[in-house]
């Protein structure tokens, strides 16, 4: 189970883009990706040399990551960003039930 070890602001060319990077103590796995996708729409690109995914939460966040790297790039939206970040931490650090289903975009599977 990965641990959330650091959070840093990412410099962006656009001031309205508030991207952050979560550092984990182990690489992102497919299992973690699916766990995060339990609260959003997953787009997964396994055919890329290093598989890429993005998860769009309807109102709270966008997560982007690479399978095998210990980092997640996130953007938080709305008025409850602190709560959203805490929920992300829970999702990362708490294993989900194994029978959990996700909504994957068909063009990216």
């Amino acid at each position: 189970m990965p641990r959330f070890v650091d959070l840093r602001e990412l410099e962006s060319c656009l001031s309205h883009s508030e991207a952050k990077e979560i550092a984990l103590d182990e690489p992102v796995s497919v299992e973690l990706m699916h766990r995060l996708a339990s609260e959003g729409r997953l787009q997964y690109f396994p055919h890329f040399p290093r598989p890429y995914f993005r998860i769009d939460h309807p109102t709270a966040w966008l997560i982007q990551g690479i399978i095998g790297t210990p980092r997640l790039r996130i953007q938080l939206f709305g008025d409850r960003r602190a709560a959203a970040l805490e929920r992300l931490r829970e999702l990362i650090e708490t294993p989900a039930p194994s029978d959990e289903t996700t909504k994957e975009s068909p063009c990216h599977t």
Binding site: S12, P49, R50, R54
Partner: peptide
């Protein structure tokens, strides 16, 4: 565009 840059860097180096 920002996501294209991210994917090119992280997935394709």
């Amino acid at each position: 565009p920002d996501e294209v840059g991210l994917v090119l860097r992280e997935s394709f180096s």
